[in-house]
Design a protein around this nucleic acid. Structure first.
Length: 296
DNA sequence: CTCGATCCCTGGACGC
DNA sequence: TGCGTCCAGGGATCGA
């Protein structure tokens, strides 16, 4: 499941492999995950992929202005434009020779000027693809929160401690931090010894500072390991990541906590499976609700 | 505004 | 063997 480290890994691989290549044509299969399919077919051919960047869980293929064909300023042909790609749960963007047989669930083919094809494959189609230019691109990007690797301590503290939502929900909220998903949320909470159902506003300053440090450390180490391959994540070269071997909480329900040996538990928080050590990560005190709770 | 619930989608695991 | 059921989860949407 591609989160920040996995998307970073794919983006770096594509930057090496396709930066400078020109898109000759686009072929589409199923298009229900594409914002405006005809924009891809009409606006991409003739453009060069100048570079590939990560933005949260998105990949941004930065495109040159159009060199051939009639420029159309209203559609961004003469200004900075990008193809946004979100891999969702099962998306994969990889380069292959044009003659190579297509994998199942391939939905987009980009023919490049060196005879290769960039193909998008996504069985569940939870991904997203959009061609955006100019102000619409800028507008799209501003709705996301801080990059967790770049966020200052001051900003992180204010983004977490001003909120009453569960800290797990805040970590997953892309308008708070862009790029964190379920795996790295659970991994960082385990390392910071914070229960996923704690409220952002109830965390101490020190706990929140620690959370930022371990989150950044986990993400950096996961990038070095080329991401986590749980079920089917493969990078742009078709290689799995290695970070799943270092998971301490995610996917370890019933197994011993690496710190204290207590079995790891799994509960649903913010609608997502949340793995934690019930001894190291103490549950928050029950809130008064007007009804008398069992704990009085 | 804030937050939780629901739904989308398919493959894989599991039970009978 | 084969069928049915459940589950995984990022994010859009809706309602409280």
């Amino acid at each position: 499941m591609p989160e920040l480290p996995e998307v970073e890994t794919v983006a770096r691989g594509l930057q090496k492999a396709v930066a400078g290549r020109r898109i000759l044509s686009v072929r589409l299969g199923k298009t229900d995950f594409i914002d405006d399919p005809s924009a891809l077919e009409q606006r991409l051919p003739g453009r060069q992929i100048e570079r590939v960047e990560r933005y949260g869980k998105f990949m941004l293929l930065r495109l040159s202005a159009r060199k051939n064909g009639v420029a159309d300023s209203e559609n961004g042909d003469t200004q900075a434009a990008s193809l946004l790609v979100h891999l969702g749960m099962t998306g994969m963007l990889a380069l292959c020779p044009a003659a190579q047989p297509c994998a199942k669930h391939t939905h987009v083919w980009f023919q490049l000027d060196d005879g290769r094809e960039l193909r998008y494959t996504d069985p569940r189609r939870f991904g997203r693809m959009a061609y955006l230019a100019g102000a619409r691109l800028a507008e799209e990007l501003t709705q996301f929160g801080a990059d967790p690797l770049l966020v200052s301590e001051e900003e992180f503290l204010s983004r977490i401690r001003s909120r009453h939502a569960h800290v797990k929900a805040l970590l997953l909220d892309q308008s708070v931090l862009r790029g964190v998903g379920n795996i790295y949320a659970d991994e960082s909470l385990w390392r910071a010894r914070i229960h996923p159902a704690r409220r952002g506003a109830d965390l101490s300053k020190k706990q929140t500072q620690l959370l930022r440090r371990v989150l950044q450390d986990v993400l950096r180490k996961a990038i070095l390991a080329r991401g986590s391959s749980i079920s089917d994540f493969l990078d742009a070269e078709g290689e799995p990541g290695e970070y799943q071997r270092r998971h301490r909480a995610y996917g370890r329900e019933g197994k011993s906590c690496y710190r204290c040996g207590t079995p790891i538990r799994r509960v649903i928080v913010a609608g997502r499976s949340s793995h934690f050590c019930p001894k190291c990560q103490r549950a928050p005190r029950l809130r008064l609700t007007g009804k008398r709770g069992r704990n009085g």
